[in-house]
Every structure is written in C-alpha cells, then in structure tokens.
Amino acid sequence: MVRHLFVLLLLTALGTLFFALQAGFSPDSELNQVGRYYASHTAQDLGAANIVTAIIVTYRGLDTLGEVTVLFLASTIIGMVLSKGMQKGGKVSDLPPAGELLSTGSRLLVPLILLLGCYVFINGHLTPGGGFQGGAILASAALMLLLADPLRPFNSRFIAVVESTSGLLYVVIGVLGIFVAGGFLDNRILPLGSYGTIFSAGAIPIIYTLIGLKVGAEFSSMLLKLSKTEER
C-alpha cells in the first residue's frame, strides 16, 4: 500500500509539472531559425520535395546511420538472448493447417505488399513515407508468410546478406560524399535532376532504398526470431 502511495505522489508531482508546461505553452507564430533554413533551402540545395525526408537522410544523416545501427544491435541481441530456444529443425509441431483463405490470400497479397513497400521507399523524397515505413511494410509481408505457414523454412541467410550489403553500401555512399561532394552523407554525389521527379534529389532515393531494405531485413529477422523459439 505504501508503494501505491509513493506512485500516486510521483504521478501528482509529474502531473503538476505537465500542467504548468501546458499552461505556459504558447505556439510559435513564425518558424524558428532552423525551421526557416530547412523550409527555404531544401528545394534548391537538395532538390527534395519532402522536407522531413531531407532532414532524415541528409541534414541529420549521421543520426539515421546511428539509428539503423541501434536496430541492428537490437536484432542481434534478440538473436543472442533467444538462441537457446531456437528450433533446430526435425521436430515438427502438430499445428493445425492455416485456412484456405489465409494461404491463398497470402500468395496473392505478398507480392503486392512487397511492391507497395518498394513504392513507399523509392518515392520517399516526393511523398510522405520513406525507408522506415517501407521497411516496416516489407516486414509485414514476411509476417504474412509466417502467419500462413508458421513452419515455413525461412532463408535467414538471405535476410542477413540483404541487411549487411545494404548497410555496407550506405556507409560507402556516405564516405563517397566526403570525396566527391561537401561532406559525409552529402546527397550531391549525383546530379540533382529536375525538381519533383523520381530521379531527382541526388542520392536521397538510393540511400532511402538502402535504409528501407536494411530496416525491412532487421524487422523481419526480429519477427522470425521471436516467433521461431520453441516452447521449452
């Protein structure tokens, strides 16, 4: 009971703090200096129509490199933590077969889901969306295959190869920016092209495609590892 009292006390303090923050908050009517720079310079300097994409891939590209590294570490640690419970094969569980609807539907839908994911990350510099969203959509295709047939042998080696190749190419493109353009992960190693078309914005579509493949592979391997552990 004392514990609950402490929790309530803590929450009351936090709530008072939040209330003061909310009461003292007045929204800006103008963009601040950083926002103004991004809004006015993105189109000329980088050629990207989606400013959020430009920030993620180029202006704060180092952040994103760290982010995919964190995801890679998370998926590796999950593999390490769960490695004792992984199925070694040979043992066939007596699962009921997935319904006709799910197995047929997954055959129909998986290519379409993969296509949608690729569309989302290739068009990341023009429309909402990008590598992380597209990667999650790719992983949901893997999830659908997994739901239709939980014992399906997944080619985890292929997933690992996709992940490490795209990560390596991402870093190579970033280093190329130091020598050819203005700095690490600069997108102007390729011509900017005409603004608003798919082949524009320099290296942003390529980098975002690589991020999408890497994130999709990481999420898929996370899902696979968590679903293929056996029940002791």
């Binding site: 959020v52 993620i56 952040d63 992380f132």
Partner: peptide
Amino acid sequence: DPLPQALVLT
C-alpha cells in the same frame, strides 16, 4: 516545423 516530425519518426 519539420524538425520535431523527423525526431519523432526516429
């Protein structure tokens, strides 16, 4: 402001 959106995406 695009910056909070990029941070939240991360």
